[in-house]
Simulated assay, not measured.
Amino acid sequence: MQVSVFDTYVTRTDGSIMHFDILVPSTLTSEATIHEYGQTYLATKGQAGQPLAAKECRFCHIEEADEMVQTSIVHQGFHIIEMQGC
């Protein structure tokens, strides 16, 4: 499965920065849906409502997904890779 990777930075409520990637099927092109997935993830981290739009979430590249990522996408539509401050 080919996935699109969106490099995402969000300012947490305490002012620190969260950096994570949102991975979605490469056929998904709706930015609104991708941002909704990001908001779903932020809610799990106690950061619901923090700004997440094109400025904070940018397409980076397409790659081949491993089995774990594919399973996550099948079950919830997206996968998150936590990078920093998550």
Rank of each mutant, 00 (worst) to 15 (best):
H19W: 15
C57H: 02
Q50S: 14
L23W: 09
S30E: 12
P51F: 02
T33E: 15
G38V: 02
Q39H: 04
Q2P: 14
E64V: 12
T33R: 14
C57Y: 01
F20V: 07
T44W: 01
T40L: 10
A54I: 09
Q2H: 12
D14E: 02
T71V: 11
E82P: 07
E64I: 12
F20S: 04
C86P: 00
F78C: 10
T8C: 10
K45D: 04
G77T: 08
E64K: 13
T27V: 10
K45F: 04
E64M: 12
G38N: 03
Q50R: 15
R12P: 04
Q47M: 06
Q47W: 00
L52A: 00
E36N: 13
F6A: 08
E63N: 00
T13M: 11
P51Y: 01
P51G: 03
D7I: 03
I62H: 02
M68R: 14
S26V: 01
T29Q: 11
K55I: 10
T11W: 08
Q39L: 02
L28Y: 03
R58P: 00
Y41I: 02
H79R: 10
G15F: 01
T8H: 04
E63F: 00
V69H: 06
V3D: 06
A54S: 13
L23H: 12
S26I: 05
C60V: 03
G77P: 07
M83D: 12
Y41T: 08
A53P: 00
A32V: 09
F6H: 14
G15C: 03
F6S: 07
E67V: 11
G15L: 11
S30L: 07
L28R: 08
T27Q: 08
V5S: 05
T33V: 10
